[in-house]
Amino acid sequence: MSDHFEARFAAVGGQGILLAGEILAVAAISFEGKYALDSPTYTAQVRGGPTKVDVIIDSERIQFPRTTAIDFMLCLAQRSWNQFAFDLKEDCIVLIDPSLVHEVDERYRIYRLPIIEITKKEMKKMVYTSAVSLGAMAGLTNVLNPESIRKALLQKAPPGTEEPNMKAFKLGLEAIKQLMASG
């Protein structure tokens, strides 16, 4: 069970976070032969409310389908942090955009990356937020080879958006490496 890994992507509805969760799970299944499952929060079908998706990855069949000790959390809204920052491991890696999330529990390993600013500046379209986030996540954790996540993103990208998605992924990956290098 040593490679059991739990991730939570939290945001507000409409940021494409559910798809990001699915891409991570698909990366584990399709490109690393692992087991994975995801379970989204399920609420009345409205836009703009806090939402999350939990992804569990394991080399063995996953029994309990819910998270109990989260290794990584991405959060793109303060409201989502307030609602979903539970079940985190003591040494959980937390990736936030400081322009959107201001108050977090500092006992976790917090990484502040201006995801929205990067997306806006380099990609022009906010739909690539999740691809930038996935790139950053790939660089921050070593659960999967970043290449697997990239390939899953390529596979799931809507036709015609493959190239910008790859660009956005690379932006996220490089930005986080830079941040980590600067300590």
Partner: peptide, 10 residues
């Protein structure tokens, strides 16, 4: 149940 209905797995 709702958990089985909504979780995705391999």
């Amino acid at each position: 149940d709702e958990v089985i209905g909504h979780l995705s797995e391999k």
